Amino acid sequence: MLTIKCNRKLLPAVLLLAAAAAGAKPYCGELTNGFGPFDYREPPPDSLYLVESAHYTEEVAAGVRGNTGTVGGDLDYTLRAFPNHVKALTSMATAAARAKVNQLPGAKYPVECYFERAVRFKPDDGMAWGAYGKYLYGAGQEARAMPLLKKAHGMAPDNPSINYNLGIAYFRAKQYELAVQHARKAYQHDFPFDGLRNMLVGARKWDGKVEPLPANDGEAGGKDDASAAKSAPETTAR
C-alpha cells in the first residue's frame, strides 16, 4: 500500500488540486454569502463601513482581540463579505503566523483558503494576486509564489507594493538586475520601507538612487499606489 506523506503547510493546496480534479465543490467553500460578496475595490454605498465598523476594527486588524467574538471570526466575516479585502487578508495571515497556526479559532477555513477565495472571486484584481503571492513566499513556498507575483505585476505594473515584493523575491533568487528594476519602480512610487534598497546597496548591486517620474506618470495613480504600499507590510526586515 502506498503511503503519502504531506506537509501540513501544503495540505490546503493538495486538497484544492484534488477537489478540482474530482470536480467536487471547492475545498475553500462557495463564495455565496448572506451579505455580499462585494468587490473591495468598488463597494456598494455603506456596505464596507457596516462590515468594518463591526468586524474589522483597529484591534481586529492588529490581531489584538475580536470585536464581536474571536479575531478569526471577525476576519472570516469580513472576508466572506469582501473576499478581496487585501488588508483583512494580510491581517488573517499575520495573526495566524503570530499564533503559529494554520487556521485561526473562529475562522471557517485555513489561511490560504481566504487568498484562494479572493482570486477566485475577482481574478482581475492584481492586488489580491500580489497578496496571495506574498503570503506563499512568506510561507517558504517560493516556487508557487513567483508565478502569482508575476501575474500581479502584469495586472498592476506600477504598484509599489507589488514591485517591492517581486524585487525581494528576485534578490533572494540572486537575479539582481530584475531586483533593481523592481526596486526602482517601487521607490519611484514612494514605497515607504527601505528593506529592499538596503539589501541591494549592501550587496553592492545598486547605488540606491531613483530618478523622479515624469509629471504625468507621477500623477497617474500615484496617490492610490502610495496608500496601498503603506497598508501592506514589507516581506523582509526594514
Rank of each mutant, 00 (worst) to 15 (best):
N159D: 15
H182S: 02
V64R: 15
C28I: 01
F82H: 08
M199R: 13
L75A: 08
A18C: 02
T32G: 12
E58D: 15
Y27A: 14
H182F: 04
R144I: 05
A232R: 07
L196H: 09
T78R: 08
C28Q: 03
R197T: 09
R41P: 03
M1F: 10
K185Q: 11
Q188T: 01
Q175F: 01
G154S: 03
G66M: 03
Y137P: 02
L178R: 10
V60I: 07
A18W: 00
L149D: 08
L16C: 12
T68P: 00
D158P: 01
A20L: 05
E58K: 13
G34Q: 13
A107Q: 01
H153N: 14
K134C: 04
Y109P: 05
H189T: 05
R117C: 03
D39S: 11
S161F: 06
K5I: 11
P44D: 06
A128R: 02
A99F: 01
N33A: 14
R238N: 13
F115W: 02
A21T: 07
G73C: 06
R144E: 15
K205C: 00
K209A: 12
A139V: 00
Y109M: 12
K87Y: 00
N163A: 03
R120E: 11
A81N: 04
A179H: 00
P12Q: 05
A232S: 12
P157M: 10
R204G: 05
P123S: 11
A22S: 12
A61R: 15
R117A: 07
G195C: 11
G69Y: 02
G29T: 01
G154D: 06
P160T: 03
S53M: 12
R117Q: 13
K5S: 14
V60N: 06
K25N: 14
G167R: 01
E142Y: 06
G69H: 02
D74C: 06
K134L: 11
Y40D: 15
I162N: 05
F82W: 11
A20P: 00
A22L: 11
E211Q: 13
L50A: 15
A145I: 06
M92V: 09
D207M: 00
A13L: 14
A20Q: 15
E58N: 13
F171M: 05
R41I: 03
K25G: 15
K209F: 04
P157F: 10
M1V: 14
D194T: 09
N33D: 09
M146P: 04
A152G: 08
R184K: 15
S161I: 01
A226S: 10
A81P: 04
Y49C: 05
G29K: 04
